[in-house]
Nucleic acid binder design. Structure first.
Lengths: 158, 158
DNA sequence: GCATTAGTACTCGGATACGAATTGTCCGAGTACGCCAGG
DNA sequence: CCTGGCGTACTCGGACAATTCGTATCCGAGTACTAATGC
């Protein structure tokens, strides 16, 4: 799985600590976690396209949550980076080769694919049950405040 | 996810139709599904290393199941190809950057990682509950027999 | 003192190189079967 | 007819390229604030 998922989740959680309407800049986020500033832009852009974040330019601009933290699931963030498509892709190899099954015999989905899709659904269900607000509460209060202060620019040094 | 997972699962299911002690050759498997013969070798080798299949050389040789189909889970086959490690890898970015948390404050696992690991566990549980025998039964009997016949060399043309 | 306007600094966004992992292919090592020759 | 040995054909296994995806980076477009200037 892509490493960008970890970056995106941490960034979204940190942005959730800011009061509504306030934005945190890409550079601040990158410095906070020691990430590549330019590369982080790519992932944040994906989050904007997916409707998780909203971007604004100019001074005091940056990224902010598109909705309340309670209304954003972890799954949404993950799918914004990894893509919403299923991880397993059935290429219907039963319809190929010397003993290929005719399309008429393949009205039922491939049993192999069914199992993989079921596991994929279980994975998504698990991620859908946790929101960004849930995640944010599990961070020690000290770091919640420290993150918000750094994002606002109030905090110069840790 | 790697495409080899689909190949491996179909091949293992097809080998499960052979009577105990009998092997199916790599070439036969590749022709049956229209796959690349040389590349399939790589995946079958992974299955041998993982203890799912047993290989034997020489005429009448090939691959056979290392255990009964009821004792091989889908998860084992998937992990043989994809690797047993978790799909999500926490790099502890909370311990990096200007506001890095000291190691002493990180005795608890990262909340982000916890959620991802839980989803990973759900995915694995789902795959662990299905065996190769289960999967084999879900294929129409006609194709079960056709696959076995082709593996034995009895069947020349579909 | 106030409004206007030009400048500046800060932000995101797309286009562009680099590296690693998956995909794909080839040739060599080893083994079991079958055939042939000798007894 | 039986037995031993040799050859052949078939199998897997590891080593070697090509392509795709994830990683990493730079520079340009746009906006809001600021400050200076003229009225």
């Amino acid at each position: 799985m892509s490493q960008g998922v970890e970056w995106a989740l941490h960034c979204v959680v940190n942005l959730s600590y800011l009061e509504s309407g306030r934005s945190g800049s890409r550079t601040r986020l990158a410095e906070y976690y020691g990430l590549s500033d330019a590369y982080l832009a790519k992932h944040l852009k994906s989050l904007v396209r997916a409707g998780v974040l909203v971007a604004s330019t100019g001074p005091q601009g940056g990224f902010r949550l598109a909705r309340a933290p309670e209304d954003i699931t972890v799954l949404e963030v993950v799918e914004a980076i990894e893509g919403a498509g299923p991880s397993f892709l059935c290429t219907e190899i039963r319809q190929q080769g010397v003993c290929a099954a005719p399309p008429a015999a393949c009205r039922r989905a491939c049993p192999v694919a069914k199992v993989m899709y079921a596991a994929d659904a279980a994975w998504r269900d698990s991620l859908r049950q946790v929101t960004i607000a849930d995640l944010g509460r599990r961070v020690p209060k000290t770091y919640q405040k420290r993150g918000a202060d750094w994002m606002r620019g109030t905090l110069v040094r840790p």
